[in-house]
């Protein structure tokens, strides 16, 4: 994979990273203050977030400009591709932690509290939680948060699954379009993808509303509520990010930034979108169906 290194673009000064560090610093510090009810926390968080947004616009704007100016050769392109790939892999591992928590609670701690397992499981159930029967979904032996109903898979989640799967297809059609150099078609199908993503997020919000308003299913509803909202919540956040990326790509497509050969930004966003898609399938199966 190694190519001649001469001509590899090495920028000489980078102003945005330090801006990003300051932004993140304020964001994290402010959020910490906010969580502890310290005055000004919310403001500092927002200022930090705003700086980060400015940084992202500035930095990516610069990269887009350089890319349009033909500064990058194919080797630089390869660096970008690899980075995006491994970044997505790191995101996969982030989700793995939460899936791990779900599996662990369902196959180890839940049954143990219900009295199944070697060692002290029987005693745990008899002495500490007498009368507790483990069944998934579970809000634990203390039934934190009170009676609730689990989120079924039929209805909104199923519709959302179909939406996301369709969006994967529309995204691929857009990709084929740009490979054929057809900007118009690409933009059209990307618009469809973004729209599907947006509807997905909207429905997800509706589902949360349902959960809180009618099912009494909350973040505080024991381990089921915790895993349900954290997994779907982080996923929803990633869908939002992915949709924004695709929207940006769409606008760049309108400006004819891409060519049949050179459209890394498109591919990066598309990969990300497929990643979000696959995570959803995992969610649909393990959080809703099983």
């Amino acid at each position: 994979m190694s190519a001649a290194t001469s001509g590899y673009y090495i920028p000489h000064e980078a102003k945005w990273p330090i801006v990003g560090s300051i932004g993140l610093f304020l964001f994290f510090y402010g959020f910490g203050m906010f969580l502890n009810d310290q005055t000004g926390g919310g403001t500092v968080t927002l200022i930090g977030a705003a700086i980060v947004v400015v940084m992202i616009f500035g930095w990516f704007g610069l990269v887009i400009k350089e890319s349009e100016a033909g500064t990058y050769n194919s080797q630089v392109d390869t660096s970008f591709r690899m980075s995006m790939m491994w970044f997505i892999f790191s995101e996969v591992m982030f989700f793995a932690a939460f899936f791990g928590a779900l599996f662990y609670a369902r196959t180890f701690s839940g049954p143990w509290l219900g009295g199944d397992g070697a060692g002290g499981a029987a005693a745990t159930n008899a002495v500490l939680w007498s009368g507790h029967d483990y069944v998934w979904p579970s809000d634990g032996p203390a039934q934190l948060g009170g009676d609730y109903q689990a989120m079924g898979w039929f209805g909104l989640p199923l519709i959302n699954t179909l939406l996301l799967l369709t969006s994967g297809v529309t995204c691929t059609i857009a990709h084929h379009a740009i490979k054929d150099g057809n900007h118009k078609k690409m933009v059209r199908w990307l618009a469809a993808t973004v729209a599907l993503g947006t509807i997905f997020v909207g429905l997800q919000a509706l589902e949360y509303y349902e959960a809180y308003a009618h099912l009494n299913l909350k973040l505080t509803s024991g381990i089921y509520g915790s895993t349900f909202f954290m997994l779907t919540g982080f996923h929803g956040f990633h869908v939002t990010m992915g949709a924004i990326m695709l929207a940006v790509v769409m606008f760049r497509g309108m400006k004819k930034h891409f060519s049949a050969e050179n459209h890394f930004a498109f591919e990066a966003a598309a990969w990300y979108w497929h990643f979000v898609d696959v995570v959803w399938l995992g969610l649909f199966i393990f959080v809703y169906l099983l």
Binding site: A101, A105, S109, G110, L113, L128, W129, Y134, S138, D139, G140, P141, A142, L144, L219, T220, G222, I223, Y224, G225, S226, T227, F229, M230
Partner: peptide, 9 residues
Amino acid sequence: TSFFSAAGG
């Protein structure tokens, strides 16, 4: 949340 609390499972 109750990831690490037995009370919540």
